[in-house]
């Protein structure tokens, strides 16, 4: 006779989130874009507008920061969201990383 499996209660997403270390859920990660001599300024502005949904003025402000200061902190997010944004920016071949905010 085939055993009837005991129903298993699997953790849902909410429970999974709860099990994550608090540090990963806190907006303690900076998404940084770094300067390079190859990406066009207009292109970088376009990417910021597309990825973050910013208006042109805000996107240009961050692009100019990258250009003049060598980098710009774009957003401060949880680990998961920061990873998502870094991946999006790298899809466009921008030099972007996420750094722990100290």
């Amino acid at each position: 006779m085939v055993d009837t499996a005991t129903p298993q209660i699997l953790p849902d997403i909410e429970q999974d989130e709860k099990s994550k270390p608090e540090s990963e859920l806190e907006p303690g990660y900076l998404v940084v874009c770094w300067n390079d001599p190859v990406n066009f300024m207009e292109y970088v502005t376009h990417v910021f507008q597309t990825v973050f949904g910013w208006n042109k003025q805000k996107a240009e402000h961050h692009m100019m920061q990258v250009h003049n200061q060598g980098k710009s902190v774009l957003v401060r997010e949880s680990m998961e969201k920061a990873e998502h944004y870094v991946h999006q920016l790298q899809k466009y071949s921008l030099h972007a990383t996420m750094e722990r905010d100290k």
Binding site: V32, E83, V86, H87, Q90, K91, T97, M98, E99, R100
Partner: peptide
């Protein structure tokens, strides 16, 4: 033309598995 391992997730150290996931996602893309 960009090699799969060119992009880094972080400059100040990241977990190897996260870097590997990033490279896999970019390669798939």
């Amino acid at each position: 033309m960009i090699p799969a391992d060119h992009q880094k997730l972080s400059k100040t150290g990241q977990r190897d598995e996260d870097q590997q996931l990033l490279e896999e996602a970019l390669a798939e893309q």
